[in-house]
Amino acid sequence: MAYNRSDWSKHYDEGRGFRPLRDVERDLLARHVPAPDGGRALEVGCGTGELTAHLARIGYAVDAVDFTEGALARARKELGSAKVQGVRWWCMDIERDDPSELNDDGYDLVIMRLVLAFVSDRTRVVRSLAARLRPDGALVVITPVVANTPHERRRIALDEDEISLLTEGWEQGERCDADGLAFLVLRGPSGSSFEAVEKSRPEPQAVLGACVVVTDEGGRVLLGRSTRGMWELPGGHLETGESAQVAAVRELAEESGLSARPDDAHLLTILHDDRADIRRISAVVRVTAWTGTPEVREPHRFTRWEWHDLHTLASLGRIFAPSAQAMEAVWPGVLPGLPPVHSYPHADAPPPVGGEQAEAVRLRHKMADAVITKG
């Protein structure tokens, strides 16, 4: 969901807030995440600090983060040091800013209340926060649910598919009802949990397709969460008369809304494997320049688009097999243990841009020597 700091600062400057913290939420916090000795908590999206103050009163030292100065100014004024002890206030966009200033020793509790629906790359953000948990720590998400939210306000809520995705990759997960809000307690983030998965048998004419590899300014790769419950690169079948590069640009626009020129789409390699009795050919196309913001253009196929750090790909769970093979072709070693696939590199392809340059040059030299088979 799109948002900006000026809109939210105006929201707080006008004296508005959010649903007040209720007794049922306080009781659930006391039951599921009581403060241990020396306990430290991180609240993301603290707003005017009502929950932060409660956490401090029950024994946590709290780092309270919000990306609007308007919210923090009200919090400091209404909950100053005389009223609340052990709180550090941080103006930070947890989705985009460098989080290095946060506590190096980790947190016993990370909590997001009424904020996750406003985050674009939810999976990446949640996994980044999970990495800051101490042993036995918990991530708590309190969120409106679509089923309990009026239609005109459902933009602030998560549906059941989003909640299910949120809980993937945790050893323990509990869900409680907090007066219509979902109260989620997640513990034990797992490490490597991805699984390359297949769809049903392709249609006979669908033997050639394009896998589109796009990265943002931070080197993160764009993946869509499909309605089949797996992550996929943008891409699809080549239409009559299309090149792989033209098909890649068209599919990228149709599926995610990003615009690119065929001149900025570069064929890196052709991957060939067998799916049932069909020879499946995947053209791996690297798009090096694009404009726009990812959005769901084909809701019957995808539920969301997110940018993902390369080092987290192996923990994403189910990834469509050709997408997994394509990313492994671009960044060898990022998804080890995949089934064998034949790779037919395009040695004249220019290297990717940014921080991937050195690795891409090394890979191109390797690919130019011979046609390889990966196992």
Rank of each mutant, 00 (worst) to 15 (best):
G257S: 09
N4D: 11
D93I: 15
D159Q: 09
L338I: 09
S315C: 00
P322T: 01
V44P: 02
Y3V: 13
P352A: 15
E171Q: 12
D264L: 10
L184T: 04
A182P: 09
L268E: 10
P352F: 11
H308M: 10
I111F: 05
R280G: 09
N148E: 11
P189I: 07
R225W: 09
G355C: 03
C91Y: 02
D108E: 08
P150I: 07
R26Y: 06
A210G: 09
D97R: 12
K10F: 10
P135W: 00
L267A: 13
R5E: 10
R134F: 00
A206E: 13
P262H: 04
L158Y: 03
S192N: 13
E217S: 13
G218T: 06
A289K: 07
G241A: 08
E14L: 10
A196Y: 10
E152A: 06
V87L: 02
V33L: 08
G229V: 02
G70M: 08
R19Y: 13
E359P: 00
T215N: 08
A260W: 04
G333E: 12
A283S: 15
T227H: 05
L116S: 08
L21E: 07
E254G: 06
A2P: 14
K199Y: 05
T143F: 11
V84M: 09
Q325V: 01
E43S: 07
Q325D: 06
G219H: 11
V371W: 06
D121M: 08
W89S: 03
L109G: 04
K10S: 06
S193E: 10
C211P: 02
L338N: 08
P135H: 01
L233A: 07
P20C: 12
W89P: 07
V341T: 12
V33T: 11
V33P: 05
T215C: 13
L271P: 01
R362I: 02
D161H: 03
H346I: 13
F320D: 06
A360P: 09
R134A: 01
L268N: 06
S259W: 09
R250Y: 07
H365R: 14
V221Y: 01
